[in-house]
Design a protein around this nucleic acid. Sequence first.
DNA 1: AATTGTGAAGATCTTCACAGCC
DNA 2: GGCTGTGAAGATCTTCACAATT
Lengths: 198, 198
Amino acid sequence: MTIKRLPSYFRVLDELTKEDVEIVSSTEMGRRTGFSSEQIRKDLAYFGAFGTRGVGYNVSVLRRRIRSILGLDRTLPVALVGAGNLGRALAHYNRNQQQHMRITHIFDINEEIIDRPVAGIQVQDAREMGRIVADTGIKMAIVAVPREAAQKTVDLLAQSGVKAVLNFAPVRVDAPEEVVVKSVDLTSEMQSLAYYCR
Amino acid sequence: MTIKRLPSYFRVLDELTKEDVEIVSSTEMGRRTGFSSEQIRKDLAYFGAFGTRGVGYNVSVLRRRIRSILGLDRTLPVALVGAGNLGRALAHYNRNQQQHMRITHIFDINEEIIDRPVAGIQVQDAREMGRIVADTGIKMAIVAVPREAAQKTVDLLAQSGVKAVLNFAPVRVDAPEEVVVKSVDLTSEMQSLAYYCR
DNA sequence: AATTGTGAAGATCTTCACAGCC
DNA sequence: GGCTGTGAAGATCTTCACAATT
């Protein structure tokens, strides 16, 4: 709900920081994010009132606050499971993007790519994943394995202490209540868009 | 709303077809998709009643009906714009997946990859995109360009007759009312998941 | 004068509950 | 007896409208 929109606000606040803007109104944030100004005020008020009536929001204060709410004030280590086409693309993408979260471990079962580097990270044997993830205390994982392997992968990750999973396998996966799974199914997205192509 | 869920139903119906199941209840569909049975019945009833009371839904009839609603009874040609890491991964992914929609054109502005093949398709010069998309009547496009180029890319696609866009650039893009844009922002997805990692 | 924060109204989406049909 | 189709109730999400504050 609100959490889903915070990253948009965060991105806009980054833009505004680069533009040396110090104060921003909910209306201007709305113009840049596509959400309504009331929505934005409600969202921000939900975590405590950060604005000044008659003035607006202090960009740097609000940015830091959202960063802290999202837990991005410390760089978050991420495990990537599956180094096929999609997994490798995600690894490269992540390397070129962010500082707030970084893929630090990559796992696969394919003998041919184990020990080889992908985006500067050595691929590790997926059979050791449980131990390594638990030992390093990794809390977030990206699953880019074939659909048949997805449920077992998520089971193992959950068991190893992972709290959030971004799943790219086109299948529904169950997880214990304390683990959040967000699925991105590219085939489904495209199929639903096909509806609008007549 | 309903449209978003149809691809899940479609996938389950494919599974059931492979398992030689002829009749399925909304309860069983719910078990497999994670949606409630009432939800599923409402969704299906919205497009006309396909079930038989006391019995269930005929798998092959329902599958064909959903395929037709989504417009996937003819293979849909798709243009991919941007052949960087992500674009190339999407091209390979699409080649290995589906028959219902196929990437038939790839465009980029990088001279070094124009005319080279990606996933068996020759990359074309993005400066010719408008003409080619309009001439071939392509209605769906995947945008995997840098954020700075996203809005102009969508503008050109919309102008060339595209009706649906799957956008991977991490930025809000505006489009005319008759064009549907669905954005998948991997950074945003990960950032909102970070919230659950404490 | 401008802009936030928020209760109330409105819209949308989901679940409940059961009549209707096989 | 079992399952669909659906109006009504409930829940959730969004917008409206305005008092509070600078």
